[in-house]
Each structure stands twice: as structure tokens, then as C-alpha cells.
């Protein structure tokens, strides 16, 4: 564990050096993420300023959901962005083999190989929205609420990573996994609004099958004092279960790779 954190730290330092070499790119990368989210938020504001609330949800409350989702997404973006391109950038050109001849876990190596700094934009937007909503809604900002948010954001981030890990592992069979990842990942958009806006089946899908709801809707409901009972605390367990299943599937895929080699 200590060894792995030391190696990871080395990767982070190297990444930072590259980043400093291309400072302008870094700046544009982060700004572009902020702008892209900004456009959606302005549109949402433009509409919601005309009605007091939607089905009991005010603009600030919806922004809280949106902000929490963005933070979880940011964790995935920062630590696991390389899962998107495993087929295109590693398996197809034969680069994946080098992970297998090194004395560390290949998944760890893949993730550490490219830490994605563009995620800074997600964190800026996410923190901004959650902070704004908390202040506007006069929610208590205490150690307890902050710890709750951190726990939920980390769980949400792990859920994101788990789902991307499963879709990334399909690259061991079909090589180009980006369309698969894209399809599954896109369903996280449902989780930017209260799940009650949708047909019941969408709520079930986003809770039990592709549990993005635990990254946004459930923790926000709890913070807002809605009575959702134990569902408020389920996220860490769901995260644990998803990442376990995802890792198993990854290992299964890795075995398949070992028998075909390409």
C-alpha cells in the first residue's frame, strides 16, 4: 500500500511537470469544462427564474443535486479517465503488454498512467454549486454535514469508476470500448435532476442497476431534510459492491486477454 502510494505520487509529480510545460493547455482545458457546465446552468436558471419551483424543487435545490453529481464525476475524471481509452490507446497499439511485464497491478498502472487534470474544472463547478446552494438554502455547514458530503462524493466517484471499469473491460473482447462506455456513462445525465421527475422505471434503473442516483439525488435529499430513511446512507455500500463486481469483471477480462493476446 505504502509502495503503491509512493509510486502514485511519482506519477502525480510527473503529470504536474508535463502540465507546467503546457500551461496554456491546462488553462484552456479547465476553463472549457467550466464553460460547458456553465452553459447548461445558465439555461436552467433562465427557465427556472420563471417558476417558483418544479414539483416542490427550487432552483437552488436542483443545483445542489447537480453540484454533487459534478463532484463525483470529477473524481472519476481525475483518477480514472484512462479507462475511456484503454482499447484505443493501449490494447490496439500493443501498449497494454508493458503493464503486464511490470511488478505492479496492471489496473493501477493504467489509471496512474494518465491522471486527468481537466477535472479541476469539474471541482470548481461542483464546489461552487454545492457551496452556493448550501448558503442560499441556509443548510447548516457543520463538520457533520461536510463529512457527509465528502463521504457521499467519494462513494459517488467510486460508483462512476466502477461502471466505467466494467465497460472498459469489454475492450479485452471488442478492442474499441469507447462506444460502450459512452452509452452507459451517458445515463448519469438522469441523475442531474431529482429522480422523481422521471418515469418510475428510470428511478429504479438509476438506483439499483446504474446507481448514479447515489452520487446526487439521495445525498441531496438527505441534506435537504427529506425523509428517505436508510437510503441516505446506502451509497458507501453500493459503491463497495459495484467496485467489487467491476474489479472481478476486469480480472475476468484480463484472463481472456491472456488467452488471446489482442
Amino acid at each position: 500500500m505504502l509502495r503503491y502510494s509512493k509510486i502514485y505520487w511519482y506519477f502525480v509529480v510527473q503529470r504536474f511537470k508535463i502540465l507546467m510545460e503546457y500551461r496554456l493547455n491546462f488553462f484552456i482545458g479547465s476553463i472549457s469544462t467550466v464553460l460547458f457546465q456553465g452553459a447548461s446552468i445558465i439555461a436552467m436558471w433562465a427557465v427556472l427564474r420563471q417558476v417558483p419551483s418544479i414539483q416542490g424543487w427550487t432552483l437552488e435545490q436542483i443545483l445542489l443535486i447537480y453540484g454533487l453529481l459534478t463532484l463525483s464525476k470529477g473524481i472519476n475524471h481525475l483518477f480514472a479517465d484512462n479507462l475511456w481509452v484503454i482499447g484505443r490507446d493501449y490494447i490496439r497499439p500493443g501498449q497494454f503488454d508493458r503493464f503486464l511485464v511490470r511488478p505492479i497491478n496492471p489496473l493501477f498502472h493504467l489509471l496512474a498512467d494518465r491522471i486527468c487534470h481537466d477535472a479541476i474544472g469539474d471541482f470548481i463547478v461542483g464546489f461552487g454549486l454545492v457551496g452556493y446552494a448550501m448558503v442560499k438554502l441556509q443548510l447548516p455547514i457543520t463538520l457533520a454535514s461536510i463529512s457527509f458530503i465528502i463521504l457521499m462524493v467519494i462513494s459517488g466517484g467510486i460508483i462512476f469508476i466502477a461502471l466505467n471499469l466494467i465497460t472498459a473491460a469489454t475492450a479485452f473482447w471488442i478492442m474499441d470500448s469507447i462506444p460502450v462506455t459512452n452509452l452507459v456513462f451517458s445515463t448519469n445525465e438522469f441523475a442531474q435532476y431529482p429522480l422523481t421527475f422521471y418515469h418510475r422505471s428510470v428511478g429504479i434503473l438509476l438506483t439499483w442497476l446504474l446507481p448514479y442516483g447515489f452520487a446526487s439525488y439521495y445525498p441531496a435529499s438527505y441534506l435537504l431534510g427529506h425523509s428517505i430513511g436508510w437510503m441516505a446512507w446506502l451509497a458507501p455500500l453500493i459503491a463497495l459492491v459495484s467496485i467489487t463486481i467491476a474489479y472481478r469483471f476486469w480480472v475476468f477480462g484480463l484472463k481472456h486477454y491472456g488467452s488471446t493476446g489482442s
Binding site: 503546457y22 496554456l24 493547455n25 484552456i28 482545458g29 476553463i31 472549457s32 469544462t33 464553460l35 460547458f36 456553465g38 452553459a39
Partner: peptide, 13 residues
């Protein structure tokens, strides 16, 4: 050199 970033800016606007 950062065509991708510019493209996201264009997309946002």
C-alpha cells in the same frame, strides 16, 4: 495546439 479545448468553448457558446 489545444484545438480540443477551443472546440469545447465553441460547443458551450
Amino acid at each position: 495546439t489545444e484545438v480540443w479545448g477551443l472546440q469545447v468553448v465553441r460547443g458551450s457558446i
